[in-house]
Computed example of a mutant assay.
Amino acid sequence: MTISSTPVPVCGVVLAAGEGQRLRPLTETLPKALCPVGNLPLLDHALRRFAGLGLSGPDTVAVNAAYLAAQVVAHVGRRAHLSVEPDGPIGTSGGIGRLRPWIDGRAVLAGNADAYLHDPVRDPGKDVAALLDGWSGETVRMLTMPCRPGESGGFSGHRFAGLSLIPWRYAKDLADVDSSLVRTVWRPAEAAGELELIGYQGFYLDTGTPADYLAANLHAAGGVTLADVSARVTGAATESVLGAGSVVEGTVVRSVLWPGAQVAPGEHLVGAVRTAAGLTVHA
């Protein structure tokens, strides 16, 4: 579809195929894209952001899946076009390359499912609309944040912040093989003087590690306890996120309880993530 801020037809792709190795053991039985932040799966945050731009439905939005793909497929249902990589993840570039027949001449707004973004003054979608504003369809655009002190790499002192806008003339040449957008799109565009860096005005975290995943949840909680209506607290919970059906009979401080997780009487859980199976990961 064509978005009002650009005359170029654009589709959205949520990249959700990764194994989440840095987030293990949390991702041993649950895909990273389905890990909840603020009691909403990361994948749903991404789909909501696309919907805020007017991109929704299987004709306009695609989700790729590989690791524990059946869970991603079941979760997405008919909300988006699904692209399953049967032999395992083939990278951000390969994932888009596999979708070329579906993309069919459109530009691609590609978003990492594990990106947590929050703008306190703009709704999801509107917070990244600058990526599309006035775009000619010729350049590659990347949402960015300034590099942190001592951080190496990046692009002209900036780091990737979860979303990139890719013209069809770049997307059409992406192969269905294991590769990354860094190698096939971003660095070549940078070398050609065709990479535009668009600053993100809100808060961004790559939730790839337990520490950053916990930090994203605590940010979503906003300094208080964010509890699903079905969570039961007979103990105490401070600055935490409590999932559906979770039970707190002890004390929880700056932690995340996944749906169905429990904290027993007399137990003190601090700075950790706990699953329904009882797995506890300290960050």
Rank of each mutant, 00 (worst) to 15 (best):
K32L: 13
R148M: 10
L26S: 04
P25N: 15
G88P: 14
G271V: 00
T184A: 14
G91W: 03
D123N: 05
E249P: 00
V247N: 00
S255F: 00
I103A: 08
Q71H: 10
G245Y: 04
V13E: 04
P120A: 13
L269V: 01
Q262V: 02
D44M: 03
G105A: 07
G57F: 08
A70W: 11
D123F: 06
K172T: 05
H81D: 02
H282R: 15
S152Q: 15
R232K: 08
V281T: 09
T225M: 07
P86A: 15
G134D: 12
P58Y: 12
A175D: 04
E249L: 02
V73G: 06
G278T: 03
L132H: 09
D44K: 04
L23V: 07
A110R: 06
D178A: 13
A74E: 15
G94M: 13
V182P: 03
R187P: 06
V13F: 10
T251Q: 07
M145I: 14
A261W: 01
G199N: 13
T92S: 15
A277R: 04
S93I: 01
G57I: 09
S136D: 15
K32A: 14
L197I: 03
H282K: 14
S83R: 11
V76C: 08
F155S: 09
S230Y: 01
T27Q: 12
A277V: 00
V185G: 08
I96G: 11
V14W: 05
M1S: 14
G20C: 11
G111V: 03
R78Y: 04
Y116D: 04
P86W: 15
L205A: 07
P25G: 12
S230R: 07
A33C: 11
N217S: 04
L279N: 08
V61Y: 06
L226R: 09
A236C: 11
H118Q: 07
M145C: 12
S255N: 04
D59Y: 07
